[in-house]
C-alpha cells in the first residue's frame, strides 16, 4: 500500500491545483456577464438550437468498436509482461486470439461500418 503513495500524491496535487486555479479565478477575475458571453460557444457561430439533439448512430458505432478492441489490448498487457516466460506457446496463443479478432476487424472493414458517408 505504501508504494502507491506517489500516485496518490500525484492525484492529490492534481486535484489541489485544479481547485486552486478555479478559486483564484473566482476571486481575482472580473465578472461582467452579458447575454453574448453566457451563450453556448459553438466555434464562434451563433448557436442554432438545443445541443440535446439526436445524434447519428455512427458515433456510437465507433465507440462500441473502440471498446471491443480496447478489451483486446487489455489482454495484451499480462501477455507482454510474461512474454519471455510463456515462450513460443504463449506467442501462438496470442496469435490465435488476435487472428480471431482480426476476422472481426475484417468484417467491420468489408461491411463499411467505419465509413463516414
Amino acid at each position: 500500500m505504501a508504494s502507491y503513495i506517489p500516485i496518490f500524491l500525484m492525484i492529490g496535487i492534481g486535484l489541489f491545483l485544479g481547485i486552486v486555479f478555479l478559486t483564484l479565478h473566482k476571486i481575482l477575475g472580473p465578472s461582467r456577464p452579458n447575454p453574448e458571453k453566457l451563450s453556448t460557444y459553438e466555434s464562434g457561430v451563433p448557436p442554432v438550437h438545443n445541443a440535446r439533439d439526436r445524434f447519428s448512430i455512427k458515433y456510437y458505432m465507433v465507440a462500441v468498436l473502440f471498446i471491443l478492441f480496447d478489451i483486446e489490448v487489455v489482454f495484451l498487457y499480462p501477455w507482454a509482461v510474461n512474454f519471455r516466460a510463456l515462450g513460443l506457446f504463449g506467442y501462438i496463443e496470442m496469435l490465435l486470439f488476435i487472428v480471431i479478432l482480426f476476422v472481426g476487424y475484417f468484417y467491420i472493414w468489408k461491411k463499411g461500418a467505419l465509413q463516414w458517408d
Partner: peptide, 18 residues
C-alpha cells in the same frame, strides 16, 4: 481463447444492429 469469440460475436452484433 473463448473470450476472443465472445468479442467477435460482440463486434458482429454491433455492426448488424447499427
Amino acid at each position: 481463447e473463448v473470450t476472443s469469440f465472445l468479442l467477435l460475436a460482440a463486434i458482429i452484433g454491433a455492426v448488424i444492429l447499427a
